[in-house]
Design a protein around this nucleic acid. Structure first.
Lengths: 328, 328
DNA sequence: CTGAAAGCGCTAACAT
DNA sequence: ATGTTAGCGCTTTCAG
């Protein structure tokens, strides 16, 4: 425990005024004579004074920090989302405390335990773990993105169902007869399942089998490639794939090409997400684009309302858009 | 300023002991009778007590937070780097405060102003702005990644010079006669320039012109595409490109293909970075891979040393690796 | 084994 | 226009 740092008291001493006055100068509050202001400023300069943020936070019971609890930032969707959240929060005067759970429930709990203890003014969550009770036990303002957490926590999500329909419909319109879908394993409480539901409903309406290959979010690329290879082996007739995210779509295309398939001639592929980075690196991918920036914006708006005490409940569903790449 | 939260004092009251005792139970310090411990625990449960992190931080003059100051997280290199830094810092008991400057000096300064005020225990920086003085003015432990900040701040970087040579050499070995390079505009104090220097030296040794097209980090994809189109118009003879990062490499390939070039037949391209996300989405890109995870690890080690007061100076340079994709 | 009291650095009533 | 004082919630000497 060090304590050499110059503090408000030292400035006061040098300037020959009281701590209150220095505090007032610092916060532009109350009436000050210009002379005093100058003296104080000079003393601050002289001492290289830096107000201690923590002390202020303790007093104000406010940290101007918002926690972001997501699986990882090393992924096109989350990278853009977190960047945008950071951007929007910055505007509102908040800084961001990162809490990437790596899909590890222990880590998610560890973050929560700490964050809920007055460390942040609010939380935006989008991690994929289940059954974490702590979210219920708190008064902290929370908003969720693309994840159902508990019923009093508002969710901001894209219209996943519509997206699922668009993707499937596009493949059907393209004349695909055997369309396969990829998604998470059942059981994760994610609006992602709506993509699957839409696919299944549409296939059923056409009296066609709905086949979903399940892929864990945190499998390695190699494991995913293995699954997709299996897909083509088990279903050589497949002529259309609706992948639940662009990374999987990309891997499927790679695997298919290695197996001699030509895209879109032999096989059509539609992805999901349409994040900046994927659009830059893989513009030829046809995909359902989520309005990621808008989602971030809306989440921050909701959170801000909750923080100032307004009753922001209910969820927000944002429209998606089909981006024509060339793979479908 | 709210103050309903249950605090240590409330727990003490319910348990019928003093604040000191509760604090001791909380921190497993000193001698306590089992009876007291149980009573206190029960009171905590009953009241849903959560120790206030900020108060503890104020007392201890330690936040267990590390600030990350980088341009953005929405980019394959920085996404992986920040994810990995988060990972390593988590291990050491630190949480991460994000400070993405968006290449905006004002924002970088705003972050610094705040972070240097006791908000974090240390800083890892890699933003690209110049001339920010505040880094010098502080006692805070700082480590930099791929950026020269000031002479007492250690830098962790890849061996950019070797990387630049490898890339250029590879293109020469491939038989390229007209190799063009892309890089940042001159003036940014980045080890990135070493890539350019290596390219220029090697070209000069072969008595070939060294031509560098300058591309701003934060230009839009469209602006970048325009520059690369210009590149092909002004230098139709080009048969090899060494891009200073994989995103540019990808854009160059796209532009070239649109102009009817076949890769690698008509044009060979080598990128730089080799981040996970690029490897997943664009495995066919030949690139110089930086050891991103290792860089994160070393940076955290250095920072940790500085935080505990060891004299960690000097810089770390890590080897790079050529990844054979197929574009060169 | 436990408690009283001081203090981390700052702010805001409430004086004057 | 400025100062005095109390206190944000916690930890830790120092006493007992």
């Amino acid at each position: 425990m060090k304590k050499q740092a110059v503090k408000l008291e030292d400035v006061a001493a040098v300037a020959g005024v009281s701590k209150t006055t220095v505090s007032r100068v610092l916060n532009h509050r109350g009436y000050l004579s210009q002379g005093t202001i100058d003296k104080v400023h000079q003393a601050m300069q002289e001492l290289h004074y830096r107000p201690n943020v923590i002390a202020r936070q303790l007093f104000q019971q406010k940290t101007n920090l918002v926690g972001l609890v997501f699986p990882t930032v090393d992924n096109p969707f989350f990278a853009q989302l977190e960047a945008q959240l950071d951007q929007e929060l910055y505007r509102q005067g908040y800084r961001v405390l990162m809490g990437n759970s790596q899909n590890n429930p222990e880590r998610e709990e560890a973050y929560l335990r700490q964050l809920l203890n007055g460390q942040v003014d609010g939380l935006i969550v989008g991690a994929h773990n289940e059954g974490i009770e702590q979210y219920r036990d708190t008064q902290l303002p929370i908003v969720s993105i693309e994840r159902w957490v508990s019923k009093d926590i508002p969710v901001v999500a894209a219209d996943n169902y519509a997206g699922g329909r668009m993707a499937t419909q596009r493949l059907l319109d393209d004349g695909c007869q055997h369309i396969i879908h990829t998604n998470y394993p059942h059981g994760l409480p994610s609006p992602n399942l709506e993509r699957r539901r839409a696919y299944e409903e549409l296939m059923q309406a056409r009296h066609r089998p709905a086949i979903t290959y399940e892929v864990n979010f945190d499998s390695t690329d190699e494991e995913k490639r293995a699954i997709f290879n299996r897909l083509f082996t088990e279903h050589p007739e497949v002529d259309g794939v609706f992948a639940d995210n662009d990374t999987n779509a990309s891997l499927i295309i790679q695997v298919a090409r290695k197996r001699g398939r030509h895209i879109p001639h032999d096989l059509k592929v539609v992805g999901f997400d349409g994040a900046n980075m994927t659009r830059t690196l893989l513009p030829e991918l046809t995909t359902i684009q989520q309005p990621i920036d808008e989602m971030a914006k809306r989440a921050v708006e909701l959170l801000q309302k909750r923080i100032v005490g307004e009753q922001a409940t209910g969820s927000v569903q944002l429209p998606v858009k089909l981006i024509d790449g060339g793979t479908a």
